[in-house]
């Protein structure tokens, strides 16, 4: 059974719907990527899945349990973690404090998880007493992902993690994300850099106007001539 399913989601801000019945799902240990043109509702779909947007139709379930009615911080306790696109670190706090805050809901000792995060992102260990606001863009993204991992989530959601970072940093971030998935976590991300993202995706969703246009494995979508022509620039 698929771990997280968002089915036939309908909703938006105010009176106009942005999501018109799209479905997105991801399984443990897999990477699912949502791509599509601007305004297709990619980020909105993420927000809906995390409960930051009230849905007018459809349902969201995790591990078979219906969580459509839960508030975001309750979903955190169900094993979901979300990395927003911007403002995703506590600027005035040190790297270590950022990670600590990520683990806020953990009442058990967190040294172990923190060590794992530092293993995954060695540069953070180096800078752990520096304020997150003073780091470079790529390092801040690592702090953001690290913070989200501190809750020991089963589902990690990333909203355009590579926005505004250089291609080299992007490749490194994608490598890290593959590492994360290989530990058995389900990864769901929205990406502008569709080609590269689909390259690492187990499952790809192409959204247009709040509906699923194409769905399939990453490699299948990359091979699909229509997808290539319309969304990947040939």
């Amino acid at each position: 059974m698929t771990f997280m399913i968002g089915e036939n989601m309908v909703g938006g801000y105010g009176s106009t719907d942005i999501l018109n019945g799209c479905s997105i799902c991801v399984d443990l240990g897999e990477i699912a990527v949502v791509v599509g043109p601007n305004g297709a509702g990619k980020s909105t779909a993420m927000k809906a899945i995390f409960g930051m947007l009230n849905l007018r139709g459809g349902k969201i379930s995790i591990d078979g349990e219906d969580i459509t009615a839960l508030a975001p911080f309750e979903r955190v306790r169900k094993g979901m973690a979300f990395v927003p696109q911007t403002h995703n670190v506590f600027n005035s706090m040190t790297v270590e404090e950022n990670l600590e805050m990520g683990a806020f809901i953990n009442t058990s000792p967190i040294a172990g998880i923190m060590a794992q995060v530092y293993d995954l992102f060695p540069v953070l260990k180096e800078k752990r007493h520096q304020r997150a606001g003073e780091l470079s863009g790529g390092q801040r993204q690592q702090v953001a992902v690290g913070r989200a991992l501190m809750t020991e989530p089963k589902l990690l959601m990333l909203d355009e993690p590579t926005a505004g970072v250089s291609p080299i940093v992007m490749d490194e971030l994608f490598d890290r994300i593959i590492d994360v998935a290989s530990t058995g976590i389900a990864v769901l991300m929205v990406e502008q850099n569709a080609k590269q993202a689909l390259g690492i995706a187990d499952q790809g969703f192409v959204l247009v106007q709040g509906e699923n246009r194409y769905t399939g494995s990453g490699t299948a979508l990359l091979r699909n001539a229509n997808v290539r022509k319309a969304f990947l620039g040939g």
């Binding site: 995390f50 975001p72 911080f73 955190v76 306790r77 973690a81 979300f82 927003p84 403002h87 995703n88 670190v89 506590f90 600027n91 005035s92 706090m93 404090e97 600590e100 805050m101 990520g102 806020f104 809901i105 913070r147 989200a148 809750t151």
Partner: peptide
């Protein structure tokens, strides 16, 4: 921990919510 969660909330309210801070 509580004090830090206050600083976190003051710094970035939305992210504090995402971290499960009440």
């Amino acid at each position: 921990r509580t004090g830090k969660s206050m600083r976190a909330y003051a710094d970035n309210q939305d992210l504090a919510l995402l971290s499960g801070i009440n």
